[in-house]
């Protein structure tokens, strides 16, 4: 099995992984970071979205070995201690979830979107969520949370 070096949420791991292990399995089964959810078998739902070297990817659609030498951020890596990331706070304030299953992926997609676009419009947020499915909420509060969270991330009052 190849030995890879991967930095996850600022901690560096040197770890043996099977050739056919997905990044999502490495995170969940080996590193026990179960905030990254698996919502489908078909790479469609986006619940497993994480950041790899700062870019949003579906961790179920990338081999763990391909993360060798790269930095991964999961939902567990956003908060600083007890202090939630502004996007997490915005999801709570705007009730941007019902069952919560898709939320980790939604928030990781939202943070990546807001890093590129500090003040996304409603349409830009909806376009940016093309790869993330929510089966409860109808997206309205998710979109509001992301617009507010983006403003908060960039220092404006939400």
């Amino acid at each position: 099995m190849p030995v890879i070096t991967v930095t996850v949420n600022r901690a560096t791991h040197k770890i043996d992984v099977p050739d056919n292990m997905l990044l999502s399995s490495l995170l969940r089964d080996e590193l026990r970071l179960t905030g990254t959810h698996i919502g489908c078998d078909t790479s469609q739902c986006g619940a497993c979205t994480v950041h790899v070297d700062g870019r949003s990817v579906k961790s179920c659609t990338m081999l763990a070995v391909e993360a060798d030498g790269l930095a991964v951020t999961t939902i567990e890596g956003l908060a600083e201690g007890e202090k939630l990331h502004p996007m997490q706070t915005a999801f709570r304030d705007h009730h941007g979830l019902q069952c919560g299953f898709c939320t980790p992926g939604m928030i990781m997609a939202a943070v990546a979107l807001a890093e590129q676009n500090p003040a996304p419009t409603d349409a830009e947020v909806r376009e940016g969520l093309e790869g993330n499915l929510c089966r409860c909420t109808g997206y309205q509060n998710i979109v509001e949370a992301i617009m507010s969270g983006a403003r908060a991330m960039h220092g404006a009052r939400s």
Binding site: S56, A112, L113, G131
Partner: peptide, 9 residues
Amino acid sequence: IGDPHVRNR
């Protein structure tokens, strides 16, 4: 193409 995450890979 696809969605933002697909376009990143």
